[in-house]
Computed example of a mutant assay.
Amino acid sequence: MQIPKNPFKAAIHAGEMQTGCWLGLAEPYLAEISGSAGFDWVVVDAEHAPNDLRSIVTHLQILDGLPSHAVVRPPIGETWMIKQYLEAGAQTVLVPMVESAEQARQLVRAISYPPHGTRGVGSALGRSSRFTAIPDYLNTAHAELCLLVQIETRAGVAALDDILAVDGIDGVFIGPADLAADMGHIGNPGAPEVHATIITCMRKIIAAGTAAGILTTDAKLQSECAEIGARFIATSIDVTLFANAMRGAATQTNAHLKGSGK
């Protein structure tokens, strides 16, 4: 058996647009529906969603073979945590709150085996090597691993040039919500100052030859980022899609059955 190819990594390096959706409901049934809905990638979120290692494994098992590539976001960029996610079979990780080139270098080392990195050698115990069914996993794994770092604070923005100079980063992702909060506009990522910063960062990432990404439900910002060359854009969140659909259904039902006096 050969190591599975990472279609997301290949696509963003080829300059192809990849559309994505956030999975925060931590529910396998909904992950299965989402993974076959037509998005190129989905994020299994463990930073703000109640996912743990076991539920992440379940999501990865479900998403295997479905059209959407699984991107896993840890709560924080700790080496030991990333190691566990890689052994669970994740091939793409999105690390939040990256604020310096040194932090970025540590993340590159975390996904790399010695002598180039610090990833522990234990793939025989995990899904990563398909439990040793991939005999050359240790020598071929890195080619299919994809590291995305998330810039979402003023410190990250200030260090962006240095972060972009770090070899081994496949993509840089802008987080509008946290960036807005750190800039004094909490709850308002559409504030002019925040918008200008996002666009400046996106242009800088693209100019450096690195894949640029973002999560935004703002259709205008989605289009603007796509037009300047962003390669991976998440446009939807399962939590809000479900919540809005349920609230809409309840409102419609109540208006129909209670509003009419029935």
Rank of each mutant, 00 (worst) to 15 (best):
residue 13 H to T: 05
residue 259 G to D: 07
residue 242 F to L: 15
residue 246 M to E: 08
residue 196 A to I: 03
residue 241 L to A: 13
residue 171 G to F: 09
residue 232 F to Q: 06
residue 73 R to I: 01
residue 201 C to H: 06
residue 247 R to T: 12
residue 262 K to A: 15
residue 101 A to D: 06
residue 259 G to K: 04
residue 17 M to E: 14
residue 251 T to P: 03
residue 187 G to M: 09
residue 257 L to W: 13
residue 161 D to M: 08
residue 171 G to C: 00
residue 115 P to M: 10
residue 60 L to V: 13
residue 71 V to K: 04
residue 157 V to H: 02
residue 103 Q to T: 15
residue 215 L to M: 14
residue 41 W to K: 10
residue 56 I to M: 10
residue 184 G to L: 01
residue 77 G to Q: 09
residue 6 N to G: 06
residue 84 Q to R: 15
residue 122 G to M: 03
residue 163 I to N: 07
residue 156 G to C: 07
residue 62 I to H: 03
residue 153 T to W: 00
residue 256 H to I: 13
residue 118 T to D: 07
residue 208 A to N: 01
residue 120 G to K: 02
residue 206 I to M: 02
residue 184 G to H: 02
residue 16 E to Q: 13
residue 193 E to F: 02
residue 262 K to R: 14
residue 139 N to G: 12
residue 222 Q to D: 12
residue 15 G to Q: 14
residue 9 K to I: 08
residue 49 A to N: 06
residue 89 G to R: 04
residue 261 G to W: 08
residue 88 A to V: 00
residue 161 D to L: 11
residue 156 G to T: 03
residue 143 A to G: 01
residue 243 A to V: 11
residue 54 R to C: 10
residue 256 H to C: 15
residue 182 D to I: 04
residue 219 A to D: 15
residue 144 E to H: 13
residue 227 E to Y: 06
residue 3 I to K: 04
residue 18 Q to I: 12
residue 215 L to Q: 14
residue 211 A to E: 02
residue 187 G to C: 09
residue 106 Q to E: 14
residue 10 A to T: 15
residue 240 T to M: 11
residue 33 I to F: 10
residue 20 G to C: 09
residue 27 E to N: 15
residue 247 R to Y: 00
residue 222 Q to F: 10
residue 261 G to L: 13
residue 233 I to M: 03
residue 21 C to M: 15
residue 183 M to P: 00
residue 239 V to R: 11
residue 11 A to S: 13
residue 193 E to S: 05
residue 29 Y to D: 03
residue 198 I to S: 01
residue 189 P to D: 07
residue 236 S to A: 15
residue 38 G to W: 08
residue 72 V to R: 04
residue 37 A to C: 10
residue 172 V to W: 01
residue 49 A to D: 06
residue 130 R to Y: 09
residue 142 H to R: 15
residue 144 E to Y: 01
residue 234 A to V: 14
residue 188 N to H: 05
residue 126 G to I: 09
